[in-house]
Amino acid sequence: NQASVVANQLIPINTALTLVMMRSEVVTPVGIPADDIPRLVSMQVNRAVPLGTTLMPDMVKGYP
């Protein structure tokens, strides 16, 4: 099973992602692959992302 990117904390709308905000976890449904975490750094979320939420491609501005 492939690990996905999961919010490690509440991420407010328009926040630029940092490594501490994300963790990898095997979840269903599958979200953004954990391998993409380095690419996500400094990209902004377009909505508030609660703790434990799987990051989906449509939540991150400019992804992929």
Rank of each mutant, 00 (worst) to 15 (best):
N1D: 12
N1W: 13
Q2S: 15
Q2G: 14
A3M: 11
S4L: 02
V5T: 08
V5I: 12
V5H: 01
V5M: 01
V6M: 05
A7T: 10
A7N: 01
A7S: 11
N8Q: 10
L10M: 13
I11S: 00
I11W: 00
P12R: 06
P12I: 05
I13T: 10
I13L: 11
I13R: 09
T15H: 09
T15Q: 09
A16E: 11
A16R: 11
L17S: 00
T18G: 05
T18L: 07
L19N: 06
L19E: 08
L19I: 15
V20Q: 15
V20T: 15
M21A: 04
M22A: 00
R23F: 04
R23M: 05
S24E: 10
E25C: 04
V26L: 13
V26G: 04
V26R: 08
V27H: 03
T28Y: 12
T28C: 04
P29N: 04
P29S: 04
P29R: 05
P29I: 06
V30H: 14
V30P: 14
I32G: 01
I32L: 07
I32A: 02
P33G: 06
P33C: 04
P33I: 08
A34N: 06
D35I: 15
D35S: 15
D35Q: 11
D36P: 00
D36E: 13
D36K: 11
D36A: 13
D36H: 14
D36Y: 10
I37D: 01
P38N: 10
R39D: 13
L40K: 01
V41R: 07
V41L: 15
V41F: 05
S42T: 13
M43Q: 12
M43T: 05
V45A: 04
N46K: 10
N46C: 03
N46I: 15
A48E: 15
A48C: 07
A48N: 11
V49P: 02
P50Y: 15
P50D: 12
L51D: 08
G52P: 00
G52N: 15
G52Q: 03
T53C: 05
T53K: 09
T53V: 14
T54K: 04
L55Y: 00
L55Q: 00
L55C: 02
L55I: 14
L55F: 10
M56Q: 10
M56D: 04
M56W: 05
D58N: 08
M59H: 12
V60T: 01
V60Y: 02
V60R: 00
K61M: 12
K61D: 14
G62K: 07
G62N: 15
Y63K: 05
Y63Q: 05
Y63L: 08
P64H: 15
P64Y: 08
P64G: 13
